[in-house]
């Protein structure tokens, strides 16, 4: 599948804008939601190819969003890849739970937009 549309759920304005800028430059269609509720609604309303999900979000935590989307009996976003992007040092249990339901789990401070794009490209080629 060719990855085209990307949803970013990120409350830090600088970080959000940085990803939006780089991903748009790289040719992706990007939507950006700032709070957890809007993020969840967006993820359910439109089939994105990739969802970049922060953990510490206002209104609704990333872990909760992921649980709703992927944790139930039915995968609500079967055609989307989810990459958790966080700077928060989560407890082991919650981190493993999120990793289980996500396709990637990355520390934001360790990932520059360039590296993020290469991660998405690797997903695209199915590697």
């Amino acid at each position: 599948m060719a990855i085209k549309s990307i949803l970013i759920i990120e409350d830090d304005r600088f970080i959000g804008e940085m990803y939006v800028r780089s991903l748009k430059k790289a040719g992706y269609d990007v939507d950006w939601m700032v709070d957890g509720n809007d993020g969840l609604i967006a993820a359910r309303n439109k089939p994105y190819d990739v969802i970049l999900l922060d953990v510490m979000l206002p209104e609704r935590r990333g872990s909760e969003i992921l649980q709703i989307l992927r944790g139930g009996a039915q995968d609500l976003i079967p055609n989307s890849k989810v990459i958790v992007l966080t700077n928060f040092d989560q407890a082991e249990e919650s981190r493993l739970a999120m990793e289980h339901n996500a396709d990637g789990y990355l520390i934001k401070a360790e990932i520059t937009p360039k590296k993020l794009i290469s991660v998405i490209e690797k997903m695209d080629t199915g590697r």
Binding site: D12, M18, R21, N87, K108, A109, I111, T112, P113, K114
Partner: peptide
Amino acid sequence: AAHELRGPITVIRGYLDT
């Protein structure tokens, strides 16, 4: 504290690279 420190670092590293 680590979470807070990592926020600006993300932006610094990201934009430096860019």
